[in-house]
């Protein structure tokens, strides 16, 4: 909880700063846009959180998005598959990718970094191959399906505000993920193996199976996000869709309290971390800061936040120790 508090404070500070400098930051339109983007990117963060908890990493997320988006566009617009079968097919594809990663990492004992780095290249190449490297648009034929992303769901008891549909998709995923991690024995197994895989194995936990599950989850969630991104943009560019999104996901997860050493991670933290990144991008536009400054600003704000968090933690630890010493 304390880890989340730090990042949450930083989020609030950035929001406050932006709102003071341009009150239009607080308009419902802008708020809901930020919620929509946070929801879309949040799905990726939740996925990578599972992998990071096991002490692994997934660098292929962006390429999985690209491949899934491209495959969806090809199946729908060129092969004219029905919507349910096309969606099922791309989800099976992303699950197969996750299983493939898991098998290589557990059975062949390859390093997750290497496996998923190769995946990053492989799936991007496949996406460009199946589309002949052409951008594909959905046109106006899939407006019904697109409601999944661009639709708005009115909140009960409020006539003015309706939340973007992806919010509910992500909320459902986050809820299931949080329950899985905190309330089931498998969530405990994941955390145990992330901290000490051998000790978990010695306790009778099938660590390989749990790791496979983590990579499977990560890729399937990347696949779901891939579908949503493709629909949101209404067109896909096989070489660019999802590029670098794994870094946003990993950054959000780490900001939200996941330790790259494994064993730690909180779904709420990941969502707040994602929100922070999206708000920073939004703030740069809202405050009319030149776009070429964005990386410098985002890097600086995050670094400042992490440093402050660490200093506050040390200060608190020192004070607690002093109090304990005084009490004894």
């Amino acid at each position: 909880m304390k880890k989340i508090l730090g990042i949450f404070t930083l989020l609030m500070v950035v929001c406050l700063f932006t709102a003071i400098n341009n009150p239009r930051f607080l308009t419902p339109y802008n708020f809901l846009n930020t919620v929509r983007w946070t929801s879309l990117f949040g799905i990726l963060g939740i996925g990578v959180c599972f992998v990071i908890i096991t002490g692994g990493i997934d660098l292929s997320i962006g390429s999985v998005i690209g491949l899934v988006g491209s495959a969806l566009a090809v199946l729908l617009t060129q092969k004219h598959w029905s919507i349910p079968s096309a969606i099922l097919a791309v989800l099976v594809l992303s699950a197969a990718i996750g299983l493939f990663h898991g098998l290589l990492i557990t059975r062949l004992q390859l390093q997750p970094f290497v496996v998923t780095l190769c995946g990053l290249l492989l799936y991007r190449g496949l996406a460009r191959y199946i589309t002949d490297d052409q951008s594909l648009g959905f046109g106006a034929d899939y407006e019904g399906l697109r409601l999944l992303v661009v639709g708005k769901v009115p909140i009960p008891f409020s006539s003015t505000i309706s939340l973007p549909a992806p919010f509910f998709v992500t909320a459902a995923i986050a809820l299931i993920a949080a329950i899985f991690l905190n309330k089931t024995i498998y969530g405990r197994y994941l955390q145990a193996l992330g901290r000490n895989e051998l000790a978990a194995k010695y306790s009778g936990i099938n660590t390989d199976r749990m790791k496979m599950l983590a990579y499977l989850t990560c890729s399937v969630l990347a696949g779901i996000a891939g579908i949503l991104f493709a629909l949101d943009l209404n067109s896909i560019q096989p070489s660019g869709l999802g590029e670098f999104y794994e870094l946003y996901a990993i950054a959000a997860a780490v900001l939200g309290g996941c330790s790259l050493r494994g064993g730690e991670g909180s779904i709420l933290g990941v969502l707040i971390g994602t929100a922070l990144l999206r708000v920073l991008y939004n703030a740069i536009n809202i405050l009319n800061i030149p776009t070429h400054m964005e990386f410098a600003i985002i890097g600086a704000v995050i670094l400042a936040g992490v440093i402050t968090d660490e200093l506050v933690k040390r200060f608190a630890a020192k004070r607690r120790a002093a109090q304990a010493a005084a009490a004894s």
Binding site: R24, Y29, N30, G240, Y281, N282, N288, T291
Partner: peptide, 20 residues
């Protein structure tokens, strides 16, 4: 506003322009 050829950024830039 520039987006470095990221379609999602391109769309978000337009949204943010309307918001601001």
């Amino acid at each position: 506003r520039t987006d470095n050829f990221d379609y999602a950024r391109a769309k978000a830039n337009a949204e943010d322009a309307m918001a601001a």
